[in-house]
Design a protein around this nucleic acid. Structure first.
Lengths: 243, 243
DNA sequence: CGGCGACTTGACTTTCTTCAATGATCGTGG
DNA sequence: CCACGATCATTGAAGAAAGTCAAGTCGCCG
């Protein structure tokens, strides 16, 4: 609500080959490109100072200019309807691309907000297109296809109704998506309220569900966040349902 | 289950400019292309005989070769998990593109099945890429972006839990997506069982929900399918929820 | 025409939501 | 640095909604 948006174009941090030294390279769009293509992309990317907690990369209805590559941190996207009701539509980890939904309409359909200090790279979309290195195009298609495939997984999450199933499924997927470097240690600082909203559950139901998973020693739950303790156990739980 | 798959490459129906005379042109990927681009695309498209009810365009785990453009009819896509449980992931109308999720992995993640006699066009993906007319590339990005945006809408559908809300929302969206030519008259022959599966509801709950919408004179329900009677009323219903 | 499968309807059970109250945490300002 | 207020999370009890079970009806295909 109160968070303010800054133009992402403010400062270009470096003219050098930033991507080459980026710690997140393997997860990034750029990581799959040939050296020459990557350098071409690199030259177009805008990098500003990191977003603070509560700051937005873009807001719903903003004109579409950039795709945002999440480098480090954690973000959420949400859509606000005509009545002011917000629906959380996703949580985003390093390597994710934000703003893909806006290409078609030329306007963002949701707001992207940092849940923590977060670094992002802004890629001017038209420039990326006009210069079109074939490799980048193909990578973009690949990334979008992956996103569509992942949405199929999400549909499966929601079509099974048990609350515990949804929670376990979400946690397992989140763990899978976490860059392997920090997979086991990562504590996710996602507000329970937002997570409940995302999962289509009452906050109370989420609370009880997490408590149960904690009893089963599958997750670590603290006031401020949670940590996956037994990823395999969670995965099993999502499969055992429905004999 | 018992439906069999046919290779979609079997016959090329015509060398002429099929797209130019296609009744579905406005809704199709090709409809947005420049004339020259469209003819280039046209030359690559494979058209076979229509699929009969229960036939598959492709099956889960098939290698990815073609994108399929739905020209007329009605299809569903579903994913089968390791236990044999199927989840319906979507219903598809003319103009929709099937197989987009397979680009990233090179393998289809779901099966596409005709619910009725259905005509589709098969577009060889690698050929489309290698020849890369800029216009087609851009159109593909646009179509995929639209799909991603639509998935956001779907998420909102599921995150509100009331069964009646989900049903009304689905019907309203289906009506919106129906090519305007036949919008008011169209009877959707979707098996209730599959629709319940898609919506994450018990078949009994769907049945009761539809009965209620029928009482309210918002839809026409018969054994074999249903028809939207008052689209605006349905839309309103999806908004009224949650004061 | 007969049988099978899909849909509907009713009664009951389970699960989730809602309401209400308490407790913890964070950020702000003194 | 600590105290305060506001916000968020948890827990219990009661009510509403959807799921399950079971029986019956209808239409379709062989």
């Amino acid at each position: 609500m109160t968070a303010q948006r800054r133009p992402r174009t403010a400062t270009v941090e470096s003219l050098g080959a930033e991507c080459d030294t980026c710690s997140n390279r393997t997860a990034c769009l750029a990581g799959h490109l040939e050296d020459s293509d990557r350098r071409a992309l690199d030259a177009r990317i805008m990098r500003g100072r990191p977003l603070g907690k509560g700051e937005d990369a873009f807001e719903q209805n903003d004109a579409f200019e950039y795709l945002y590559l999440l480098r480090s941190g954690l973000m959420e996207t949400f859509h606000t309807d005509s009545k002011g009701q917000a629906t959380i539509t996703g949580f985003h980890l390093p390597g994710d691309i934000l703003g893909l939904d806006a290409i078609a309409q030329g306007r963002h359909t949701e707001t992207a907000r940092a849940l923590d200090t977060t670094s992002i790279c802004a890629l001017p979309f038209t420039a990326a297109l006009s210069g079109r290195t074939g490799g980048l195009y193909a990578e973009l298609l690949r990334a979008m296809s992956q996103r569509i495939a992942r949405n199929g997984t999400r549909h499966r999450l929601f079509s099974r109704r048990s609350a515990l199933y949804r929670i376990a499924h979400f946690l397992a997927e989140l763990h899978t998506r976490t860059p392997s470097s920090s997979a086991s240690a990562a504590t996710f600082r996602i507000p329970k309220r937002d997570l409940a909203n995302f999962l289509g559950l009452a906050p109370e139901t989420l609370s009880r569900g997490l408590a149960r998973l904690h009893e089963l020693e599958l997750v670590e739950v603290s006031k401020r966040g949670f940590k996956v303790r037994d990823a395999e156990g969670l995965e099993n739980m999502t499969r055992e349902e429905l004999e």
